[in-house]
Measured scan of single mutants.
Amino acid sequence: VTVHVDGVEYDFDNPEEALKFAKKVAEDKNGTYEVHGNQIRVT
């Protein structure tokens, strides 16, 4: 699973970890996250 944040890609073997990371980053920057299959984009 790849999490995209501001043009940087973070790869996770564990989808739950990826989702947790995306949620935290989105909260920290008052943004949102979208899941597209095995890609998660934080905006």
Results as ranks from 00 to 15, higher is better:
V1D: 02
V1Y: 15
V1P: 04
V1C: 14
T2I: 11
T2D: 01
T2E: 03
V3Y: 00
V3R: 00
V3S: 00
H4Y: 14
H4A: 08
H4S: 12
H4T: 13
V5E: 02
V5K: 01
V5P: 01
D6L: 06
D6E: 08
D6W: 06
G7Q: 05
G7E: 06
G7S: 06
G7A: 05
G7M: 05
G7R: 03
V8H: 11
E9I: 14
E9R: 14
E9G: 10
Y10G: 00
Y10C: 10
Y10V: 05
Y10F: 10
Y10I: 07
D11S: 15
D11N: 15
D11K: 15
D11G: 13
D11R: 15
F12Y: 05
F12S: 00
F12Q: 00
F12W: 02
D13W: 09
D13I: 10
D13S: 12
D13T: 11
D13N: 10
N14Q: 06
N14P: 00
P15T: 11
P15N: 08
P15Q: 13
P15Y: 15
P15M: 15
E16L: 08
E16I: 08
E16R: 05
E17S: 09
E17R: 04
A18E: 02
A18F: 01
F21S: 03
F21P: 03
A22D: 02
A22P: 02
K23H: 06
K23A: 11
K23G: 05
K23T: 09
K23P: 02
K23C: 09
K24V: 08
K24I: 09
K24P: 00
K24M: 12
K24Y: 07
K24T: 10
A26F: 03
A26G: 03
A26N: 02
A26P: 00
E27F: 12
E27R: 12
D28E: 14
D28Q: 14
D28A: 13
D28L: 12
K29Q: 12
K29N: 14
K29C: 14
N30M: 08
N30Y: 06
G31W: 12
G31S: 06
G31L: 09
T32Y: 14
Y33L: 13
Y33E: 02
Y33D: 01
E34I: 12
E34G: 03
E34C: 14
E34H: 10
E34W: 07
V35L: 07
V35G: 03
H36R: 11
H36S: 12
H36K: 12
H36D: 13
H36C: 10
G37F: 05
G37R: 04
G37L: 07
N38W: 02
N38S: 10
N38L: 06
Q39N: 11
Q39L: 12
Q39I: 14
Q39P: 01
I40M: 04
R41H: 15
R41P: 02
R41C: 14
V42A: 02
V42N: 01
V42P: 01
V42T: 03
V42W: 00
T43E: 10
T43G: 07
